[in-house]
Design a protein around this nucleic acid. Structure first.
Lengths: 204, 204
DNA sequence: TTTTTGAGTGAGTATTAACTCATTATAAAA
DNA sequence: TTTTATAATGAGTTAATACTCACTCAAAAA
């Protein structure tokens, strides 16, 4: 008898992970169109044939990475929604995490950039995945705006249009992710207090 | 005798502008690798042959667009440097302009995104253009940080690491540009007061 | 009307990149 | 050692796209 089911499963999982991480890096750093499958396979240390045994097309591979990234986003929504901690505490905790993720590695930055790419033209705007990302995004903005409003009522947050502040909040994080990938280790992520300062009132 | 030099020059200029604007839109919306030359020519309403009469390669076309975008950036450096207006006034004026540019069209967003793309991997990091963009970027950040420090001394600006605040400033603008292109007209740019609020002290 | 010059064309070619498949390698058990 | 199931390979095929060139078109003046 050959190897057991579990052993084969293990092997497949290992190569999938190799493909996953090199494809992620290449798609994010070079863009979908400028990344070729040969490069992905080379970087992963496997043959093209094996790559195609796991993914029918380049696009299918890309879509799986996007789906993985969207999962990450979803977790944040529940984080903001299903908690009745004080808004300031929640935001602070969230920004601290973003800060440490961005400071220590590229993973978070990669996820954000990949999602961004998946929404650009050329994407099938009628696909289930596209619609889901749009929905998730809208919900994330809304639940954040809600949180900001609550913080404004407590008197801890600056006044201002909460929806606009939420948009600015995520735009700045997206921008920081972009810079992180661009400048690599030459880049110092602004400290959490800088990132949140437009939200919170000053206390002297 | 055929047409005059000036007439020919006029014709060439017109087609170059057509190529310029459609290439800009396509590169920004689809990325360099996913944009094909046929599409650019079609969108510009000309033949591929004519396009290649103006640009030797796809890459040369891309580089010209990047050079054009960098010119735009450079103007801002002098704006911050060669003026001794009060920092708050300068920043306010700058952000007002960014706000109205982002609100009314995609041009500014396109420039920012194109520059971003040009710095990604796959780009020749030893090329003159690449180095220049990096330099310009660093100078822009530095002169902005300088301005912030000045504002902090006046007591108009919040305290905090000026360099980090400058980074956050441009990251947020980059993120807003990205969102503008992603969501098109479904996107409301946060008002100038939201964008600047992390810099300025509150006044009740 | 003819000539002249350079813009403009697009089918055709060369190159590159996505994808296939006949074959080999591996390791566990009979 | 042989068998067996499936992972792994990469030269070869197909499809896409960057780029060329022999030609036509347009308008001004002789």
């Amino acid at each position: 008898m050959p190897r057991s089911k579990e052993q084969f499963e293990e092997m497949r999982k290992a190569t999938r992970e190799k493909i996953h991480s090199s494809a992620m890096r290449l798609f994010v750093h070079q863009g979908y169109g400028s990344t070729n499958v040969q490069d992905i396979a080379d970087t992963a240390g496997i043959s093209i044939g094996l790559l195609y045994r796991h993914y029918k097309t380049k696009e299918e591979l890309f879509n799986e990475l996007v789906a993985y990234a969207v999962e990450g986003l979803k977790r944040n929504i529940t984080f903001f929604n299903e908690s009745d901690h004080p808004p300031k505490k929640l935001i602070t905790q969230f920004v601290n995490e973003v800060y440490s993720d961005l400071s220590h590695g590229e993973e978070l930055a990669n996820l954000l950039i990949l999602i961004n790419q998946s929404l650009l033209a050329g994407a099938d705007t009628t696909s289930k995945q596209y619609k889901e990302i749009f929905q998730v995004n809208a919900r994330l903005l809304d639940s954040t705006a809600q949180l900001i409003r609550k913080g404004q009522q407590c008197g801890e947050f600056r006044s201002g249009d909460a929806q606009e502040m939420a948009v600015f909040f995520y735009a700045s994080i997206q921008g920081l992710a972009e810079m992180k990938v661009l400048f690599k280790n030459n880049f110092t992520v602004p400290s959490p207090s800088v990132i949140t300062s437009f939200l919170f009132k000053e206390r002297e």
